[in-house]
């Protein structure tokens, strides 16, 4: 082998190795906004919670439990009640996830404002849970729904720790990670998620963000909306109308 050829092979080898390392290292870091573009051309689901409308009845929690056989002590969705008094003390509660609604408050001070905030998986665009799953059991569908493959999940709980919203838990019988799926099994049949269907005041809306005529897309365009913990960089696809600064 002559020197030139040897040099060429050597350089090609190094270049390939270098690019390989570069590609694998870059895949380690989340790319802001990248996943917004992935997914199918026509469907990207989103969820809107209107906290101005929620009355804290807990029907959504009950429907979710029935529809998805959620274990008693865990929750795929829940409702929080915020009570803020005149001296800026914040009281938050969610008894049994508000599956039976709320009792009258025991707060004795003068209440300035009070409201309910339904919570569920945010199906983040840059989902931390998807990033940290060591075996790829947590993944994002082409429609932007974050799901868990319970046949592949090892049950390490890393995703539970990584979710800043407390939306995940280890299913006590299946011993794998579990969480809200936006009722993917219903949605794929053209139905709405169970919690959306039962909400008597339309505090929960679900739809296709890519369809400009959908209600969710219209609200996103027209209303002032917020997301939970935007500083985490997870880019949630569960949006909130009327989000108070005290809500975390």
């Amino acid at each position: 082998m002559n020197a030139d050829r040897r040099k060429f092979i050597k350089q090609t080898g190094w270049t390939l190795l270098g690019s390989g390392i570069l590609v694998s290292v870059s895949s380690f870091f989340p790319a802001a906004g990248r996943a917004m573009q992935k997914g199918s051309a026509h469907e990207l689901y989103g969820f809107i919670v209107n906290t101005n409308r929620c009355i804290g009845c807990g029907k959504c929690v009950e429907a979710c439990k029935t529809e998805n056989h959620v274990p008693e002590e865990f929750f795929r969705t829940w409702v929080e009640r915020y009570i803020i008094t005149a001296d800026d003390t914040v009281y938050v509660d969610s008894p049994h996830g508000a599956v039976h609604g709320f009792k009258d408050t025991e707060v004795k001070e003068k209440i300035e404002k009070s409201f309910f905030v339904p919570k569920l998986c945010n199906h983040c665009t840059e989902a931390n849970c998807v990033q940290v799953c060591p075996v790829g059991a947590t993944y994002t569908t082409k429609e932007g729904v974050v799901l868990v493959d319970e046949k592949h999940c090892v049950g390490c709980g890393y995703c539970v720790q990584a979710c800043p919203y407390g939306a995940r838990y280890i299913h006590p019988e299946r011993r794998t990670a579990d969480k809200c799926t936006w009722c993917y099994h219903r949605v794929k049949k053209g139905l709405m998620p169970a919690c959306v269907v039962v909400c008597p005041v339309e505090a929960r809306l679900f739809g296709n963000l890519k369809d400009p005529e959908s209600r969710v897309a219209r609200i996103l365009r027209e209303e002032r909306i917020g997301v939970l913990k935007p500083e985490t960089g997870n880019s949630p696809k569960t949006f909130y109308v009327g989000l108070d600064k005290e809500v975390r």
């Binding site: 694998s24 895949s27 380690f28 989340p30 998807v130 990033q131 940290v132 799953c133 060591p134 075996v135 790829g136 592949h152 390490c156 890393y158």
Partner: peptide
């Protein structure tokens, strides 16, 4: 079936 975006993998 490692997923290399995960520190654990």
């Amino acid at each position: 079936t490692p997923k290399f975006t995960s520190a654990m993998s």
